[in-house]
């Protein structure tokens, strides 16, 4: 289903959910939960957004049913730890590549995805200052290295 323009801000989280459907369905579930919450704040009044959000809710309910034996789904505190570990693992991979001077598309994507997953942590409550800083750094690094590679410069 096409994403209404008013909900464009959640497109990257929805794409991350799609990319993790098979690799890590728990990540896919919480990315969609984040998208749902954010989408409702952005616009749940116009018919096209309501229709989209109702579909997203159907998807979330069916995912929860299918994964009813996963502690990470039935207990959000376990889900919180799962998403945080996954995001930080991705951040550390990209950071190690960066510090080793290995600049490539995959590490840029890892920095960016880790920042999106750190966004997702906000569904569990207020984010820690450390995670806010990691998110800021990861997003900045992803943009900076992407721009360097595009213009043929070597990142510092």
């Amino acid at each position: 289903m096409a994403l209404p323009a008013q909900l464009r801000a959640i497109q990257h989280h929805l794409r991350t959910a799609q990319e993790h459907e098979d690799r890590d369905p728990v990540v896919a579930y919480y990315c969609r939960l984040y998208a749902m919450q954010s989408g409702m704040k952005l616009d749940s009044k116009t018919p096209e957004c309501r229709k989209f959000l109702i579909k997203l809710m159907d998807q979330l309910e069916s995912m929860k049913k299918e994964m009813s034996d996963h502690d990470s789904i039935t207990q959000e505190v376990v889900g919180n730890a799962h998403i945080e570990n996954y995001a930080l693992k991705m951040f550390i991979y990209a950071d190690n590549e960066d510090r080793g001077g290995r600049f490539h598309k995959n590490m840029i994507k890892s920095f960016y995805t880790s920042s999106l997953l750190l966004d997702v942590l906000s569904v569990f409550g207020e984010m820690s200052e450390e995670n806010i800083q990691h998110r800021k750094y990861a997003r900045w690094k992803a943009t900076y290295i992407h721009n360097c590679l595009k213009s043929g410069e070597t990142p510092l």
């Binding site: 749902m36 919450q37 409702m40 749940s44 309501r50 109702i54 809710m57 039935t74 207990q75 959000e76």
Partner: peptide
């Protein structure tokens, strides 16, 4: 008509909020 549309929209919005709360109930 616009008042009816707005009532429908707000009812659907409430339903979505309720479904979200139920989804997250442990």
């Amino acid at each position: 008509t616009s008042s009816l549309a707005s009532t429908v929209a707000s009812t659907e919005q409430d339903e979505l909020s309720q479904r979200l709360s139920r989804l997250r109930d442990q």
